[in-house]
Design a binder for these strands. Structure first.
Length: 765
DNA sequence: TGATCCCGCCAACGT
DNA sequence: ACGTTGGCGGGATCA
């Protein structure tokens, strides 16, 4: 039963946060939909209407479709609803699949709209396309990394300068007619060269991210990234639409700079801004300059630090990971020593590579796409609220979403202990790996969803200096425009220092007394409770979660596997230079499946195999970028002799290694890079439970794999294996194997295999 | 009014 | 041929 909006001070613009949270928490999507289908009778007056102020309680007839009112259909709201369906930090293999059709249907919108959302999410690597109608949800796991990368690229592109230039010019030509004036302004920057910026990828994500790359990926995706870059490189982190549009246009094709083009650009930017806003990465504000107030947006997302440093892991890996600054000395040198795998290159896909990538993608595509019939949203199906979803539900969804976001902090904190505390044996076996032994190789199975979060910084990139960004001395972006005033759309507290690291800006608002205080307080309170709740829930499957999830991966340590085979494999298939290195390497049967986590595995008699497929497509770039293995050094003790990692460290590392896009064999030297923790203890922890159900699935996986595991593989075989691999229920997965020795030889001793499992879909619905 | 931006046509692509 | 993606911009709404 929808609680009533007790408080809601009159006139207050609807605050997603307010009391709704209760509703939300109470009403999970499913429930809500159930209710919806019922009649909407109850909800009408509730106070959910976006525009509460006046016409609230309509008589009971038209509330339903009286007037969806433009706002109710806004992309922003839709986006909120969309986001509400997925956790910010999805655990490993949760229900991270997104089916566009379904979503569109459930959200009651046209597919087209979903694309708008998904596209920008994709630009942030929060989702990635898997196949035709499917996307994988990654949530914010990659966000930090993505932002860092974007920032870097943005800096490389001299966005800061461009912005300044633009402003300056603008200033100068105040009087000038826009029409002619702009022509010249577009050119100013040496643009040409870097104009070719394409989709920025993340190591490990590239493939998927680019999977859609075929089409002139020009707009949304890329535009979105550029837009974000602008925020990240500008000092007041405020970007006006106008400026953004101009810069973005400038880069695009230098062709007609018609006014229409500008207009269109702005339109797109609004679309993007809407979703970014929903993500709470930006907020609308107004900049008042000479002219008047111009719409602009202010970055409210997490502060993006130059690199590493913010990753909890850092502490742990610090020893092995030299800080960037140090590496700069000589690129070559460094790269040689520290960055075994190549060096430079932004994570931007260069046009020249596209082709290659494309072919790869095609390859992949074949494997994955299956016909999907577009499901039309028939207004007919009365049973399922064809009509307007109750506003209540909407709000609930939103608030829920928000709450989740707020709790994220806690989650992050949680991760923290990991670095310090010895991993106590958690039920999640993965942590229990035996101490590293002499030579051990590990194969890690990566599930797509848990996109590897490793970042490798290329020296070149590292060149960029001060954490403070704004390299150039001329930092006063709007120095002259100091008069720039920003007006917050809703709340105030503007440019003040945002707490860095505060993911969600919201919490901070509490500070404000007065008007805002009301809601803020409320909000914060709620959020707290909520997070608590969340916390509790996290351990067990949330009651309201319709899906049952299973352990996502199992570790199967195997003795001395060989790895050579693997290596060979790599070379073979490399033709494309890239390729999905998905091969399977097999080795002698496992001595025994080690206990690790999955009991069922034991049941299944698995031949030991060492799989090394990398389902992640590695573009040349990425390869370079992802030397992978990263802390392999940690594993291979030899490198840093003295530091034989304690088992705890090892475990920890391994765990996280799972996130790394490995598969790329590790070159001689350990690469340094830092990674982000993407999975938290929780994920692992529940893996121990409900295992049985999936047994069959597991075995299935295994069988498939094993089927192909025979001796050295031929390219063909690999291919086949690959396909099968992808077909696995779990979807594409990645297994990587790596080992690193100081001398470049493989040192392998022990291997671990992660087998991701997919949860059964039990959803009602 | 100008700021927003929904809507959906229709082209580019993939299959 | 048909389905999926997703530019694009008219024109309705909102403030």
């Amino acid at each position: 039963t929808p609680p009533k909006a007790a408080e809601t001070p009159a006139g207050e613009p609807w605050t997603p946060t307010s009391n709704l949270k209760m509703l939300i928490s109470a009403a999970s999507p499913e429930i809500r939909s159930r209710e919806q289908r019922r009649g909407l009778s109850g909800d009408a007056g509730q106070g959910l209407p976006p525009k509460p102020s006046s016409q609230e309680q309509l008589s009971g007839d038209e509330y339903e479709k009286s007037q969806p009112s433009r706002k109710e259909k806004s992309l922003g709201l839709l986006c909120h609803k969309f986001l509400a369906r997925y956790p910010n930090y999805p655990s490993t293999v949760e229900n991270n699949y997104i089916c566009l059709d379904e979503v569109a249907e459930e959200l009651n919108v046209e597919r087209r709209r979903i694309y708008d959302i998904v596209n920008v999410l994709e630009s942030l690597h929060m989702v990635s396309r898997l196949a035709k109608n499917r996307y994988a949800w990654h949530g914010r796991h990659n966000l930090t990394k993505t932002l860092q990368t974007l920032k870097k690229v943005g800096e490389e592109n001299k966005y800061t300068q461009q912005i300044e230039m633009l402003k300056k010019r603008e200033y100068e030509h105040e009087f000038d007619t826009d029409g002619e004036g702009n022509e010249e302004m577009a050119r100013p920057f040496g643009s040409v060269e870097h104009s070719e910026m394409c989709f920025v990828e993340l190591p490990g994500m590239e493939f998927r991210a680019a999977s859609v790359n075929s089409r002139k990926d020009k707009s949304l995706r890329v535009m979105s990234q550029k837009f974000v870059m602008l925020f990240l490189v500008s000092t007041p982190q405020i970007v006006s639409l106008e400026v953004a549009a101009k810069i973005l246009i400038g880069e695009d094709q230098f062709e007609d700079l018609g006014k229409s083009k500008f207009k269109t650009k702005i339109r797109r930017l609004y679309d993007i801004a809407n979703v970014l806003s929903s993500l709470e990465l930006i907020k609308k504000v107004h900049v008042t300059e000479e002219r008047g107030r111009k719409p602009a947006f202010k970055w409210t997302g997490p502060e993006v630090l130059p690199n590493a440093r913010d990753t909890k892991l850092e502490a742990t890996t610090a020893t092995w990971v030299p800080h960037i600054s140090e590496s700069i000395a000589s690129k070559e040198q460094c790269s040689k020593n520290l960055f075994p795998s190549r060096v430079k290159q932004s994570f931007t896909r260069h046009p020249s590579l596209i082709k290659l990538v494309k072919s790869i993608e095609n390859d992949r595509r074949k494997i994955q796409s299956a016909p999907t019939s577009p499901v039309k949203i028939s207004a007919s199906s009365d049973e399922n609220l064809s009509t307007i979803p109750s506003k209540m539900a909407q709000l609930a969804a939103i608030s829920k979403h928000q709450l989740e976001g707020q709790s994220q902090n806690a989650e992050e904190m949680q991760v923290r202990w990991a670095s310090g505390c010895p991993p106590r044996a958690s039920p999640a076996a993965p942590l229990l790996l035996p101490p590293a032994q002499a030579a051990v190789s590990y194969a890690i199975y990566l599930h797509p969803s848990q996109a590897p979060t490793v970042t490798t910084y290329s020296p070149s990139l590292m060149l960029q200096p001060l954490p403070c960004s704004n390299t150039t001395g001329s930092k006063s972006i709007d120095s002259r425009g100091s008069n720039q005033t920003t007006t917050e759309g809703g709340d105030d507290h503007t440019a003040k220092d945002e707490p860095r690291n505060v993911p969600t800006a919201t919490k901070r608002q509490t500070v404000q007394p007065e008007a805002v205080s009301h809601k803020c307080l409320k909000r914060s309170q709620v959020s707290q409770e909520n997070s608590l709740i969340k916390r509790c829930r996290s351990d067990d499957e949330s009651p309201d979660t319709p899906l049952t999830s299973f352990p996502s991966r199992y570790l199967i340590p195997f003795p001395q596997c060989i790895h050579h085979g693997t290596r060979a494999g790599f070379s073979t298939k490399e033709k494309a230079g890239v390729c999905l290195l998905q091969h399977a390497t097999y080795s002698s049967p496992i001595a025994g499946v080690i206990p690790v986590t999955a009991p069922e595995l034991k049941t299944v008699n698995i031949p030991a195999f060492h799989i090394t497929p990398l389902n992640i497509m590695l573009s040349p770039t990425s390869i370079a970028a992802a030397p992978v293995l990263s802390n392999s050094c940690i594993i291979s003790s030899n490198t840093s002799s003295a530091q034989t990692p304690s088992s705890s460290v090892l475990n920890f590392t391994l765990q996280h290694l799972g996130l790394i896009p490995a598969g790329v064999h590790v070159p001689a030297n350990p690469v340094l890079q830092h990674m982000t923790i993407s999975s938290n203890p929780e994920c692992v922890s529940h893996s121990s439970e409900h295992t049985n159900l999936k047994e069959e699935k597991v075995s299935k996986n295994i069988l498939q794999l094993s089927g192909h595991c025979n001796g050295p593989k031929e390219p063909q075989e690999l291919q086949a294996a690959k396909e099968n691999f992808f077909r696995t229920p779990g979807g594409p997965n990645t297994v990587s194997s790596f080992s690193a020795n100081s001398d470049g030889t493989d040192a392998i001793s022990q291997g671990t295999l992660y087998i991701p499992q997919r949860k059964l879909e039990v959803s009602e619905d």
